[in-house]
Write a protein that binds this DNA or RNA. Structure first.
Length: 478
RNA sequence: GCACUCGUAGCUCAACUGAAUAGAGCAUCUGACUACGGAUCAGAAGGUUCGGGGUUUGAAUCCCUGCGAGUGCACCA
């Protein structure tokens, strides 16, 4: 890094000496492999200043550098590109500096703080392949910030409340027969996920039966007994009915235990968890304050809206006519809460799928309109879906790839390949198991991270674990 | 319909802020080594950067436009 700064200063001086004027935005880039040199100055933009052709301009600068520079040992000119070769002494010094610096590549903490949110699953089913991309992206960005001198706060919001968990609860109560993770030796999140599927099956069957009895589809969807139980549970939950709350806590507890095991296997962690059940009522006061200040407006029915048409977006509802919150209201509250919890953070990164791009655009605009200057430093780290060679993942069709299963398979495949190659030699079984995990998980992480986040991507499990090609195992082996 | 994103070699992906002959891996082909195959090694071929305009000394990259794919456009979350 030092060398780049020093070299730039020298080149800036050379430009000033030769053409009598300082230029700030010099384009210095790595020299192409096929030419001699390590750094290249692009001289085309300087021709206006030099009033000479690009090659002559480059040559004049090269000569000047040769005379005055401490760093440059030689130069060559190809078209308008001035290729610079540094002296051997320069490189020796660079390498010595690197050797003397134990934290090379890392900026020591500088007091800047940032919050990174990732994962943020629903609590009614286990994590899947999409969550893996999310977690690895979020965690990596956090690590990058850390290496750049930031103190990072890793958080997630857990969607522990709402009709989705009530569906699992309803199915468990109706058909569960008291089954627990212990009694069935099933991982908690998988058990709750199983009852979510049970619910869906029962619901569909019941709707079908009711339609056959002459009900309309719409009526049947409301009248299906399982749905009535689930809706009733949601109502009771909101009324804080002790029995419902107890069941909700129990089943969420199972899920959390399952999740933490998955996170441990993935190698990610969180500093603080936000629960939607704690935050879903937040934001209402902020919205009402916004109404008083004229940032938002009320419609005749009493509902509160924000008008974003001037920003090229629509009008969005923030509070219903009955005064209750909608989804974005709680996000407003949660964002503000987080900046209160961590007053020193300068911004927030939300790692969330690209289907929520519009939502975050609206959210950040609203926070800005409410006068929070940090709204400009909130960023939606958006990423595309993960497809499989067999096609799209669809929960209804059961083509979702479970995160635990996948990690398991990758590790097993790593073991198979390593044993075939006979590479484990005299390792004991403990060391070998560590190795398989490292290879399997490395394959997964590398493959999911090597693609531009915003692009939709194809995950090929078989390709990812290969010892050849652009893969994690290849890099680890090398 | 409107908005946003994406479109690069047969396939999966690179190309930082506009820069030199658009790069990798896989697959393919040729050769070496192999009893044969695999593995390995050496090499080759593979591109109108979706089409058409424009801006620029210079465009995969920026602008306009057409086409294709995806996502979003609930008083759901």
């Amino acid at each position: 890094m030092q060398i780049e700064v020093a070299l730039r200063a020298e080149i800036e001086n050379a430009v000033a000496n030769v053409f009598g004027q300082r230029v700030d935005a010099l384009q210095i880039q790595p020299t192409n492999q096929e030419f001699e040199g390590s750094h290249t100055l692009v001289c085309f933009p300087l021709t206006k200043l030099s009033r000479k052709g690009p090659e002559e301009t480059a040559r004049m600068l090269g000569e000047n550098l040769l005379q005055h520079s401490q760093l440059v040992g030689n130069y060559n000119v190809i078209k308008g590109f001035l290729n610079l070769t540094l002296r051997d002494e320069t490189w020796v010094k660079v390498l010595n500096d690197i050797r003397a610096n134990p934290s090379f590549g890392q900026t020591p903490p500088e007091g800047r703080e940032i919050m990174i949110e990732y994962s943020s699953p629903n609590t009614n089913k286990p994590l899947h392949l999409g969550h893996l991309r999310n977690n690895f992206l979020g965690y990596s960005v956090a690590e990058i910030y850390k290496a750049n001198g930031y103190t990072v706060h890793r958080v997630q919001i857990i969607n522990d409340r709402g009709i989705h968990i009530c569906k699992s609860m309803a199915a468990w109560k109706l058909y569960g027969d008291g089954e627990t993770p212990d009694s069935s030796s099933t991982k908690g999140d998988h058990l709750v996920g199983k009852y979510y599927v049970e619910f869906d099956k029962a619901y569909k069957a019941q709707v079908k039966a009711l339609v056959e009895k002459g009900m309309t589809q719409e009526e049947a969807e409301k009248e299906a007994p399982v749905m009535k139980v689930a809706a009733d549970m949601l109502r009771k939950w909101e009324q804080k009915d002790p029995e419902t709350i107890a069941l909700w806590k129990t089943m969420n507890g199972w899920v959390y235990e399952g999740f933490s095991e998955t996170y441990r296997k993935m190698g990610v962690a969180f500093e603080k968890l936000y629960y939607e059940s704690d935050t879903y009522l937040l934001g209402k006061d902020e919205v009402l304050k916004g109404v008083d200040r004229g940032v938002f407006f009320r419609k005749p029915d009493g509902s509160v809206w924000v008008d974003l048409t001037a920003d090229g977006l629509d009008q969005k509802v923030l509070l219903r006519a009955d005064g209750t919150s909608v989804y974005i209201t709680q996000d407003i509250g949660t964002a503000i809460l987080r900046f209160r919890d961590f007053p020193k953070i300068t911004g927030q990164v939300y790692t969330v799928g690209n289907e929520q791009e519009y939502h975050f655009k609206v959210l950040f605009l609203i926070l800005d309109k409410l006068g929070y200057d940090w709204a400009k430093r909130c960023y939606h780290l958006s990423y595309g879906m993960v497809d499989l060679p067999s096609g799209k993942m669809k929960s209804r069709e059961g083509t979702v790839v479970d995160a635990d299963d996948l990690i398991e398979e990758m590790t097993a495949e790593a073991e198979k390949q390593t044993r075939e190659l006979g590479k484990i030699g005299d390792m004991n079984s403990e060391e070998a198991r560590e190795l398989f995990k490292m290879i399997g998980l490395g394959a997964l992480k590398f493959f999911l991270l090597k693609v531009d986040p915003k692009k939709r991507m194809l995950f090929d499990p078989n390709e990812s674990i290969q010892l050849q090609g652009f893969t994690g195992p290849f890099i680890q082996y090398t």
